[in-house]
């Protein structure tokens, strides 16, 4: 067991971990942050996407010890402290961009990374960026709309 320290959603945390402890295990089992999900074991589904030092990262495909000293952001840190949803989260609700909710944390974190890199993506750019995030419920239609809307581009609102 080795001590690992990082900041998660702005809060310094440290714990003793095994070498084989993945970041997602550190978050879910160690910190109780169960919003980050595990949907596959081949690094394809993207339900576990978090930000490590500002970059989208599959938390099931990186060791906790490789995140020593890193700044990690998870879905639990996206809303304001008073519970107000972030613009991306709000767009997902307004545009019905989620159904069962299991892929949603990864989708939101990937969307946030995309808009950070590319504030006004085209539809094709959104779809391409989501290559590593699989959703089985929505057919992606409303996810793409939600992300376009969150970028400030005009999109008809689903919830109207």
């Amino acid at each position: 067991m080795t001590k690992v320290s990082m900041r998660v959603n702005g809060r310094p945390v440290s714990a003793e971990v095994e070498g084989r402890t993945l970041l997602v295990q550190f978050l879910r089992e160690g910190l109780g942050l169960t919003g980050t999900h595990v949907g596959c074991d081949t690094a394809q589904c993207g339900a576990c996407v978090v930000h490590v030092d500002g970059r989208a990262t599959k938390a099931c495909n990186v060791f906790a010890m490789d995140c020593d000293g890193a700044e990690v952001a998870t879905i639990e840190g996206m809303a304001a402290p008073d519970g107000t949803l972030s613009p991306i989260q709000q767009a997902f609700q307004d545009h019905h961009g989620l159904q069962c909710g299991f892929c949603t944390p990864g989708m939101v974190m990937s969307a946030a990374a995309l808009l950070d890199e590319n504030p006004r993506p085209t539809e094709a750019e959104v779809r391409e960026y989501l290559e590593g995030n699989i959703c089985r419920c929505t057919g992606y239609h409303n996810i793409v709309k939600a992300i376009l809307a969150a970028s400030g581009q005009p999109v008809a609102v689903a919830a109207e």
């Binding site: 919003g35 998870t74 639990e76 996206m78 609700q93 307004d94 989620l98 909710g101």
Partner: peptide, 16 residues
């Protein structure tokens, strides 16, 4: 087309 109430917990990582 009421917005879904369940979305809030799913969008904030607090689903169970």
């Amino acid at each position: 087309s009421s917005r879904r109430r369940e979305d809030v917990r799913f969008l904030t990582g607090t689903g169970r």
